[in-house]
Simulated assay, not measured.
Amino acid sequence: MSAKAEERVSHQKLGQQLELFMSSEEAPGMPFYLPKGMVLRNELENLWRIKHQRAGYQEIKTPIMMKQELWEQSGHWDHYHENMYFSNVDEQKYAIKPMSCPGALLIFNSKRRSYRELPIRYGELGLVHRHELSGSLNGLLRVRAFTQDDAHLFVREDQIESEVDKVLDLVDEFYSEFGFSYKIELSTRPEDFMGSVEVWDQAEQALESVLKKKQLDYQVNEGDGAFYGPKIDFHILDSLGRSWQCGTVQLDFQMPEKFNCQYIDEENNLRQPIMIHRAIYGSIERFMAILLEYFQGNFPLWLAPVQIKILPIADAHVSYAEEMKQQLEKEGYRVEIDDRVEKIGLKIRESAMQKHPYMLIVGDQEIENDVVNVRKHKLGSIGEMKLGELIGHLKAEKRN
């Protein structure tokens, strides 16, 4: 093992240390999110919503459990049922969704569609369940219950390449936000495929054409496509250079046919749309695990569950700390006060262990001068500041 690898702390240990998530034998492979973990998760979901609204996506939500016949119709039963969970309700067989695509297809079919509406871009933060072997479970990296940042685009044939092009730009925009490097793979027709070879060839050529036009480096992963279509996969490189498959773009001519999806073209004829399946985080869980190990819990200010920890030296300084907290919270910052009767050195050490981006120490001198003593994680003291000066400093860091 390299020295770099030995220095790294696993996301499981960091999750425990920073009080982000936990696991339980009561629900193997199904994470429990603690309050601070929910803050981190919500920040990722908020970023997802903002960027998708700007990119013209409409958010939807579909049921996590639907009748088994639906999964037989979609092809998941034939190709995926060993990884699915089932239940009986009112003497009918149901399946808990391993993917969100059939729900998006039902929404598309809920009314008549015109060619003028296309492309339709549906985005969904969909909770899915997949049966993974107990021995393969690994923290947040491999779980049985997770949230996919799914999107399903319904496009005309002449829109395929332009829409895939936009998806590739959106993926790059997301990963650049975190400073991630990534590799691209084009995965082609598997042995257990659905549909005709001719349609598969057409789909593979469309994806490869976009990659070549954008002059992107990619590798061909023969036979690793989804059962319904070829795909472009994005593999994030983590802090140790390990590769994790997160984002994907999949081209699907099969499911729109199976669900009889149609739109009316400009000549008033019925046409079948093409479906693009797409995810960027891949799953919120896996992305959080990679983020944790990449940053080693030293999150940028905007992501940190607790952004500012205020440390009063004694009880006499708590009311001043509370005033600071209220004003900082009005500015939108996440703030905690450590008002325990403990020595200030211990409070500083414990805050450093929690990797809070900023600590504000307040005592007699700070109250007298109406300032706070500011410490930045990993840098130590950066001096005394008036509250307005500190807020300006924090805003500049968040912008960057």
Rank of each mutant, 00 (worst) to 15 (best):
C261S: 15
F259W: 01
F253M: 11
L301G: 07
A206E: 08
A321F: 04
Q245W: 02
F295W: 14
P312M: 10
Q272A: 03
R278I: 01
E267G: 08
Q215K: 14
E222N: 14
V318D: 06
K231R: 11
S319N: 14
D233K: 04
Q262R: 15
Y294E: 11
Y281T: 06
I313N: 02
I310M: 08
S283A: 08
D315G: 11
G241L: 13
Q245A: 07
L292P: 03
S319L: 12
P305N: 11
Q272I: 14
I310N: 07
F259H: 06
R242L: 13
E222A: 15
I313G: 01
Q245D: 10
F234C: 02
H277Y: 08
A321D: 08
E266Y: 02
W244H: 15
Y281W: 04
Q215A: 15
H277D: 11
N298K: 14
F259S: 10
L240Q: 14
V306Q: 08
S319E: 14
I236H: 01
Y228I: 04
P273Y: 05
G247L: 06
E293D: 11
E267Q: 12
K258V: 00
Q262N: 12
I236M: 03
P300H: 08
G241D: 10
D224R: 06
F295L: 09
Q262M: 08
P305D: 09
M255S: 01
A314T: 15
Q215C: 09
V306C: 08
A321I: 13
F295G: 03
D217T: 13
L270W: 03
L237S: 10
T248F: 07
L303A: 06
C246M: 14
F299M: 05
C246K: 05
M275S: 09
Q245N: 08
G282C: 04
Q307K: 05
L251W: 05
F295H: 14
M288W: 09
L303R: 09
C261M: 11
H317W: 02
W244L: 04
N269V: 01
M255R: 03
K258Y: 03
F259K: 07
S209D: 12
L240E: 14
L216N: 03
K258S: 05
K213Y: 13
P305W: 12
E222H: 14
L216I: 11
G229C: 02
I313W: 00
Q262W: 01
A304F: 12
C246F: 01
